[in-house]
Design a protein around this nucleic acid. Structure first.
Lengths: 115, 115
DNA sequence: TGCGTATATAAGCATATGATTATATGATAG
DNA sequence: CTATCATATAATCATATGCTTATATACGCA
């Protein structure tokens, strides 16, 4: 068993473990079509702000998402430059679209929009 | 958010969590090319027999693998009839082959072969 | 400058996970 | 029929995970 193969498997299982949480998985799927800020996620997942922050941190620590400040908000987006992005994308493609979550947010007038 | 979408995401994250363990992920990749019995896994992963059994149980409980008795041994194989097999397969395709593990086992004369 | 809002971090806690050891089951070979 | 080998399950334990509450940071704006 070569060292790099071990490393690759370790890396892959680490990525899969990150995606093996419904909140984070849904976040990633959502981010494929819409950048979102923290407070939007709080609304969407009906979860406390620190809980959301902590999920985002895990995704960010491993480089799957990146953050961009826009005015008062910090928007998160998918880091398509990640070495394993094709792998991630392959997984996300199999999942049902989560755009309904954003639509719902807009209907409530809670979508953050800053240009 | 429709109920089925939620269910699908829940199911997907559950599968990914299962694969988000290096031992189980490697088992699945291995099983794609070789059926293996419990004692082989014990050798390959240098792990206790109960530990291996428990990993296999998780994979079996969710239907990803199935077991077949052959003589004294119980061989595990991938359940290609699983509803989510295409999803799983898509993931495994991105991973480096683990055949070296079986080759190594054969070199040690530990490969179980029963016809 | 200082206040309010958005986000991050820290600490604590309950539950989940993965390993170990000990023991049970179950099929096979004598 | 019994002893043995392969595997499964149970009990236990240490660590990991994900949430909560409390607090810190950092930017935007009056």
């Amino acid at each position: 068993m070569s060292k790099t193969v071990t490393t690759d498997m370790q890396r892959a299982s680490q990525l899969l473990k990150l995606l093996g949480d419904q909140t984070r998985l849904t976040m990633m799927k959502l981010l494929q079509s819409h950048d979102c800020c923290v407070c939007e996620f709080v609304e969407i997942f009906k979860m406390s702000q620190p809980a959301i922050s902590q999920h985002l941190r895990k995704l960010r620590d491993i480089g799957l998402v990146k953050e961009t400040r826009k005015g008062k908000w910090i928007f998160y987006s998918i880091n398509e430059d990640h070495d394993d992005y094709p792998f991630i994308q392959g997984i996300l493609e199999h999942l049902p679209g989560q755009d309904g979550l954003v639509t719902e947010l807009e209907a409530q007038g809670l979508r953050i929009c800053c240009e």
